[in-house]
Design a protein around this nucleic acid. Structure first.
Lengths: 218, 218
DNA sequence: ACTATAATCAATTATTATATTGAACGCTGT
DNA sequence: ACAGCGTTCAATATAATAATTGATTATAGT
């Protein structure tokens, strides 16, 4: 085969995969799928997408082999085809953060307003879990916790935190985590906890990043 | 700021960067830029792009802050804004390879035809350079070699290899490398070398991948 | 069999991306 | 100052992408 033709074909294939990633809604959907299999309905509940539009975006991901679908009864559960997809998402996000001062500023302002600017890194957390120094709090919706969570973490979705806050211990720092660095649930949790006098920080990353570093662990 | 608005802005920014990557020509251009600063003319010579079109694609990359431009006289030299860009390119390529059997097949067939299927990994190469077991051959155009190369490598562009092949030693294996795994120059070199009775393999990766692993070294 | 629900499909419209052409700009050397 | 060259700009035509609407399909429970 001719070299030029070979190159054209490969670059075209690679661009097709990249195009499937290059949409704000699909980036958001990928972050949701990284938490575990999701029905189309679940995606719709957690985004601003209409049913038909969400379905179409999911099909774009599926066609590019970034996601796969499994039918169970009336529901169609989509999930990422493998962890490499989230890895690319992560590297893209990091590139965006490093190139784009605007993104960095947005996050800083957002976290500043919620007193969650100071974060705990994944490495720190792992160390401090071993030393039994922290309570790890999963503030994602319960469905996502059930699909997988950091071992030892307890589940209190952000919406229920206010009423269950009295059950939390005051002798340890509370590290809240959620879907990832772009997810605001942990920030809201930290804000509420601090208002009630707890010592609390958010995990800089989220559950999918923890999964990447601890493959296979539940 | 409202959570929804915050997310929309960030995902939109990230998608903008990703869109700048999501084009076959720009992926090819990025691979060229990863070899070192290139003028628009140089890009045109090594692709199938017209002058105006190449310029436009470069401006897309620049606008997304993936590339930067430096004017020297009549020439405008473009280069990647930092190594993170190539890193993303690399992860995207690996994702493409793993998801897409078609790409894998294309490369296998291509290399099979040139007897260059068996490759040397970067790690292997580094080990064997230390043991002085191999001759490292840079078969990229001389301009790119001058911009940076693997230490100890000698430069013979593929086009000149036939006439200079008699100068090569026969006591060591020859490892040829070029711009990366999608570049065919090393494959063509290996084919020619084998025809002349040399023992030769291509480096699986290319110069940019070597650079990522050895930052700052010339 | 009938109904409600989850998801998809098909058609339309609006928006955005891409390639081409020819003209214009800016720097260099004479 | 001017010619030549590399590059960019502007205008245009074409193609691809995205969101919306309403209709359709498939399944579970009654």
């Amino acid at each position: 085969m001719d070299v030029r033709e070979f190159k054209t074909q490969i670059y075209t294939e690679l661009a097709t995969v990249t195009k499937a990633l290059a949409n704000p809604h699909r980036l958001e959907v990928i972050e949701l799928l990284a938490q575990g299999p999701c029905s189309v309905e679940y995606i719709v509940e957690h985004t601003r997408l209409s049913m038909a539009n969400a379905s179409q975006h999911l099909q774009v991901l599926k066609k590019a082999r970034l996601a796969k679908a499994e039918k169970k009864g009336r529901y169609n559960y989509y999930s990422l085809s493998n962890s490499r997809v989230y890895e690319v998402w992560k590297v893209l996000r990091e590139l965006g953060f490093s190139q784009n001062a605007e993104i960095e500023r947005l996050i800083r302002d957002f976290r500043n307003a919620r007193q969650s600017l100071e974060t705990v890194s994944l490495q720190d957390l792992q160390q401090r879990i071993e030393n039994n120094e922290v309570l790890v709090l999963d503030v994602r919706p319960n469905e996502e916790y059930e699909e997988g969570h950091i071992p030892g973490a307890i589940s209190i979705p952000t919406g229920q935190l206010k009423e269950r806050i009295k059950d939390l211990p005051r002798d340890r720092q509370i590290v809240a985590y959620c879907r990832g660095p772009l997810c605001a649930m942990a920030d809201d949790a930290v804000e509420l906890l601090k208002q009630h006098g707890f010592e609390s920080k958010r995990l800089e990353e989220g559950y999918p990043e923890w999964m990447l570093q601890n493959p296979g662990v539940e």
